[in-house]
Design a protein around this nucleic acid. Structure first.
Lengths: 158, 158
DNA sequence: GCGCGTATACTCGGATAGTATTTGTCCGAGTACAGGGGG
DNA sequence: CCCCCTGTACTCGGACAAATACTATCCGAGTATACGCGC
């Protein structure tokens, strides 16, 4: 069970854009250059964030990406679900109903099976934890030099 | 981010074996038949559970699988980590240190980045939740008929 | 009855193939800005 | 001076290719039980 790399990319980009929210939008080229990421694929991930309403993109020259809202209102979970999808990691295939186990099925399967209940509960705890942190939190927690360095590089002309 | 199907299989098998712990070990053929699962692949997953010390297997005729310990002492998390590996779903690739961002690196990266801290915390909450439920819990929560039906089928000769 | 050989029913582990998902790249099209030339 | 036209720097979206998981199957080998056969 693995989470895509795009999540790390997306979160770092959100933090970065949070620091530069008072400036012009930042192009993919700049963001990819800062983190040394494949530009085209990063674009795809950011597009997913835009579709979820987390980022906005402006086309044309001097266009680029910026946060769609204040960093305090974007949670880590928002980013994760935008990039990884809203479906749970554990998907109950109801194997208890298949094969011989499902033959003489009575009321037996009216209730969801305990396994999926436990799994759902665990993912809920996970989501809750992710939802309790915002981009603003991440910005505040980062070393002070990081924001400055990024301003210099990413708002530099060229 | 998706969890392998083997987790559902493994948990159902553990519950089933818990119900049959007083009987002879159960063969793969029986288990696969009960849930209608691919026999050879199920075997692989159960072997992973055996390697983790959750199941024991006995070779030879009338051999098969059984729980290695009392169901109260096997947590759902034990099963999940045995099947999915112990590594976190989120793996921090430290992209903050790459590209232009890593050029003038000072003490900046001495502390782990806030993103991985948040992610780790969330997975911890997830694991904690999984660890709080045991196979015995799942057995108790299942409809009473299920245990009976399984005894009939799986301990039946042939 | 006892011992031996054989058939049977399992597991073990490696090798391999198929499929789905993730990651990465490419290209044509649209959009905004900037600058230059003609009116 | 103003308008249009073109070049440039972006994004959008689809199509495609590569890499990596995940799922599934196959096979030779080992091991314990069951059974029958000869002694």
């Amino acid at each position: 069970m693995r989470m895509g790399e795009g999540v790390e990319w997306g979160l770092h980009c959100c933090v970065t854009l949070g620091w530069l929210s008072d400036e012009a939008p930042v192009s993919i080229r700049r963001l990819a250059g800062w983190f040394d990421l494949p530009q085209e694929y990063l674009k795809k991930r950011l597009q997913a964030l835009a579709k979820a309403g987390i980022l906005t993109s402006s086309p044309g020259a001097r266009g680029g990406w910026s946060l769609a809202g204040p960093p305090e209102r974007i949670t880590v979970m928002d980013v994760v679900t935008a990039l990884e999808g809203a479906t749970d990691a554990f998907r109950c295939a109801e194997i208890r109903q298949r094969g011989e186990g499902g033959r003489g099925a009575g009321q037996e399967f009216a209730h969801p099976c305990g396994i999926s209940v436990v799994m759902r509960g665990a993912e809920l705890a996970w989501r809750r934890e992710l939802a309790s942190h915002t981009i603003a939190d991440l910005m505040a927690r980062s070393p002070s030099g990081a924001a400055r360095a990024r301003r210099n590089y990413l708002s530099m002309p060229g």
